[in-house]
Design a protein around this nucleic acid. Sequence first.
DNA 1: ACGATAGCAGACAGACCTGTCTAGTCTCGA
DNA 2: TCGAGACTAGACAGGTCTGTCTGCTATCGT
Lengths: 194, 194
Amino acid sequence: MSAASPSTTRKPSARDRLLAAADELFYAEGIHTVGIDRVIERAGVAKASLYSTFGSKDELVRAYLEGRHALRRTRLLAGLERYDDPRDRLLGVFEVLAELTGTPGFRGCPFYNASAESTRGGPIEEVSNANRAWTRGLFFELARDAGAKDPAGLADQLVVLYDGASVGGRMDQNSTAALTAREIATMLLAAATL
Amino acid sequence: MSAASPSTTRKPSARDRLLAAADELFYAEGIHTVGIDRVIERAGVAKASLYSTFGSKDELVRAYLEGRHALRRTRLLAGLERYDDPRDRLLGVFEVLAELTGTPGFRGCPFYNASAESTRGGPIEEVSNANRAWTRGLFFELARDAGAKDPAGLADQLVVLYDGASVGGRMDQNSTAALTAREIATMLLAAATL
DNA sequence: ACGATAGCAGACAGACCTGTCTAGTCTCGA
DNA sequence: TCGAGACTAGACAGGTCTGTCTGCTATCGT
């Protein structure tokens, strides 16, 4: 098998290594506390490469968040493929979240975290809003497929539960909140499809 | 009326002015992005006064969060005094939250925000956990007084709703999430006191 | 009257951060 | 073989941050 894409070569490109390092460090320790030097040291990349690839730290941060957004979409959709019944699929979102919040490295929603330490109106807010809109859209579709009378209203409720479970998972360092959210979602779903 | 306490003198003390300035700036823009110079400039206070009063920026941050904790308790308890019926008192928490998330300057939970931009294990985490424990305890008492069969379980559910409403209020810049949370809480309360 | 206390103004040190620039190395295709 | 493109190593500039230190001033209790 010949090397079809850069990602299959022996060593990942500088771009990929930078992105991987930024992802780990920014998520674990925050964006402000992690300096460029830490990122390039972990990536094993020269500073000039970072600036020729991304142009600025802000753009690196944007790329980090866009990567998180893409990863979240694929992970969530992949996790939902386990289920056939539309109701199970809707509740499956909270199963996936429970798995995520149960892992040791979980530090809450990367978009909210980034937003909390940045001033309003930058690229962070953009990606953050896109991610949020996608979540709402997913819940809307799942609610509609599950036969909810008011799918938009149910989606709003589920978003509240999702956010709450995410916060709880971070602050309490366990997945109790996600399981609680799943229970509530079960009740709401039953009430919405009467 | 003579000046009975320092807080009634003509000009607030340097400590109070520093705390007020730190509160505004840290909450509005984040802790890392706001430097000491900004704080003392707004407070109209010399840098030496800051360091002789608080000792370090970390301690100023702790004082800021402790002030927020105290303010939140009094505001919430005061807001609940409007209601007599135990059920109304429980739901009243979400009314107060709706009012808060509706105000223009609302930027989410100051404890979660501070925690999001700090490394683990400092004073921020301490105050944050204390605040969180207080909230859970309040919900437990309210749930018990409202006649819930499993007040601890209901409290867990309400905490999820509260966190979710707080996040939603910040990200969407309105109080829809808080009102949605109130609706869900109504259902949960009904189900818990059957 | 006077000493203690609190506070103001601002220079300064030392660390750290982003971003630029120079110069050398490695790889690979034509 | 050779030249272009990607990358590395690291010095450097300019700014910002926390925290310290030196003087000066005003107020207040005794």
